[in-house]
């Protein structure tokens, strides 16, 4: 395990050192951004709509029983932007994009495409890892902003339409505006950036470590997704503590 962590950190450092070729790789970065956005936007929309909705559904009646139903906007607003949207989107992206990265790079490794790049003096970190890591680091925070907005809307729809809650849109968003500050949204977006780095580096590392045949590619994909999710959840705790200490 410690060897893998060391290798992941080395890969991350090498990727940072290759930032000098960002301009040369801009076409690949844009392609990856499109790939991630195109593959994830609809699912992110559905996922966050239902996350906001189910949160309102679970907490709304409890608040209503105590005469606090107007607080539903703030509760859903804060929960979605500080925790649910960044973590759920990161888990979703780890499964959807991290797995694809590990599979693509792993198959390139198995079928000697990466060896071919090296013989042409093309650095696989610059050619493969850098565009993917940059693209996911830009795309995930953007997706999280989108997910926060859609999650709030999902909560509002359930709050307005559910008879037990009965909070209209205006009251819901009024309280949400009172409770949620810009730094609360920033909290979720900052966390999602770190989650994106974890997904990108772990998935690319697993892909580059693939040896053997098609079965090895499958193993790499599974490891990439599981390790990313475990690291996201651990990192979430420490980042939350750090951001709370910093007052964000």
């Amino acid at each position: 395990m410690f060897q893998s962590i060391g290798e992941i950190l080395i890969l991350f450092w090498k990727t940072i050192c290759s930032f000098r070729v960002i301009l040369a790789q801009r076409r690949k970065i844009l392609e990856q951004l499109f790939e991630i956005g195109n593959a994830s936007l609809l699912m992110a929309c559905i996922l966050s709509m239902f996350i906001g909705g189910v949160l309102a559904l679970q907490s709304g009646p409890v608040l209503a029983e105590r005469g606090l139903s107007t607080y539903i906007g703030g509760l859903v607003g804060l929960s979605v932007c500080k925790e649910l949207a960044p973590v759920m989107m990161a888990v979703f992206i780890a499964g959807r994009i991290g797995s694809a990265m590990a599979a693509e790079i792993g198959s390139m490794r198995v079928y000697q495409e990466i060896d071919a790049l090296r013989t042409m003096n093309i650095d696989p970190v610059e050619y493969l890892v850098l565009p993917r890591l940059l693209a996911i680091s830009i795309a995930l925070p953007l997706l999280v902003v989108f997910a926060i907005l859609v999650g709030w809307l999902g909560g509002a729809m359930v709050s307005a339409s559910n008879g037990q809650i009965g909070v209209p849109f205006q009251a819901y968003f009024g309280h949400l505006r009172e409770m949620v500050e810009v730094h609360d949204v920033a909290n979720g977006v900052i966390k999602s950036f770190f989650f994106a780095v974890v997904i990108g580096v772990v998935s690319c590392h697993q892909g580059l470590q693939t040896f053997g045949g098609p079965r090895a590619i499958g193993r790499s994909v599974t490891k990439a997704v599981v390790n990313s999710i475990v690291l996201i959840l651990i990192l979430d705790y420490f980042l939350t503590r750090l951001l709370l200490a910093l007052g964000i």
């Binding site: 693509e104 390139m108 093309i122």
Partner: peptide, 23 residues
């Protein structure tokens, strides 16, 4: 240096032209 691999080792995500002109 260049090497012709037994399997070809072409980059499957690129076209033939892009593969040949990659270097």
């Amino acid at each position: 240096l260049a090497m012709v691999f037994q399997s070809g080792a072409l980059l499957n995500s690129l076209t033939v032209g892009e593969n040949v002109g990659l270097f």
